[in-house]
Simulated scan of single mutants.
Amino acid sequence: MIKYELTAEELFIIDLLFLASAEERHPEYLCEYVVNSKVHLREILHSLQEKGIILKSWKLPNTGEKFDPETIVFNKNFINNYKKYSAELGIEFFNAYPSVCIINGVEAPLKNFAKKFNSEEEFYFAYGKSIGWNPETHKKVLDLVQWAKDNNCRLINMNICDFVISKMWQSIQELKDGGGTITFDTMQTI
């Protein structure tokens, strides 16, 4: 809000526009809010264009024209900043990571972020920073975590903080690709 000088209503409309997008497909929330709050959506959309959140090349509908929220084109820099500050990527990662694993017959919790971070938000920010707030990298990490869970991969037996700090998804990728493993017999090496 501070960076883009947004009002609370503008930020709320942005969230409703994201919900109405082609990915989410819930335009009913935006419609219900506009009808019940008597908000002047056109004015807010114009303000969002002026603030550089919606591209100026997007044609703002005239009063009385049908409005399709799926046509809105957001500024890529704004989207990157939104993902960065909303913690959306970190929350998705946290939810995808396993909560518990069994090590030598004992259950061990894996989602204790308090061991290294002061708050959930701080952890979410650290995860986002470690992947450069890149949605493609984020999807790849989620896919690798799922692959590791499905294949009983032992590389996912560590605390979530250690996993992020060490970027363990890179090791899982190596393992998935068939490399990165060394096998040795400890009894023979002694």
Rank of each mutant, 00 (worst) to 15 (best):
T7C: 00
T7W: 08
A8S: 15
L11S: 05
F12H: 09
I13H: 06
D15L: 11
A20R: 02
E23C: 05
E23H: 02
E24K: 03
R25T: 12
E28M: 06
Y29T: 14
L30A: 02
L30Y: 10
E32K: 14
Y33I: 00
V34L: 10
V34K: 05
V35L: 12
N36T: 11
N36G: 12
S37L: 14
H40R: 15
L41T: 00
R42H: 08
E43W: 08
L45C: 04
Q49P: 02
Q49F: 07
K51W: 11
G52W: 13
I53P: 03
I53D: 01
K56C: 00
K59A: 08
L60N: 00
L60Y: 00
L60I: 09
P61K: 01
N62D: 01
G64E: 01
F67C: 02
D68H: 00
E70L: 08
I72A: 05
I72S: 04
N75I: 04
F78T: 03
N80L: 11
N80C: 08
Y82M: 02
K83R: 15
K84T: 07
K84A: 07
Y85C: 06
Y85N: 10
A87Q: 15
A87M: 15
E88Y: 08
E88M: 06
L89G: 06
L89W: 06
G90R: 10
G90M: 07
G90F: 06
F94G: 05
N95G: 10
N95E: 14
A96E: 10
Y97M: 00
V100C: 06
C101E: 13
C101N: 13
I103S: 00
I103V: 12
G105Y: 11
V106C: 07
E107S: 10
E107N: 11
A108W: 05
P109T: 04
F113A: 07
K116L: 09
F117G: 06
E121D: 12
E121K: 11
F123Q: 09
F123Y: 10
Y124L: 13
A126C: 12
G128M: 09
G128I: 05
I131Y: 10
I131R: 02
P135V: 05
H138M: 05
K139V: 11
K139L: 09
V141Q: 08
V141F: 12
D143F: 03
L144P: 15
L144N: 09
V145S: 08
Q146T: 15
Q146Y: 02
K149V: 06
K149A: 11
K149H: 06
D150M: 04
N151L: 07
N152D: 15
C153R: 07
C153E: 15
R154P: 03
I156A: 01
I156H: 05
N157Y: 04
M158Q: 15
C161V: 14
D162I: 13
V164H: 12
I165R: 10
I165D: 14
I165P: 07
S166D: 13
K167Y: 08
K167E: 14
W169E: 08
W169R: 05
W169L: 07
Q170K: 15
S171F: 01
S171W: 00
I172F: 00
I172N: 13
I172K: 11
E174R: 09
E174Q: 14
K176I: 03
G178S: 09
G179A: 11
G179P: 01
G180V: 00
T181P: 00
T183Q: 12
T183R: 08
T183F: 06
F184N: 02
T186L: 11
T186H: 11
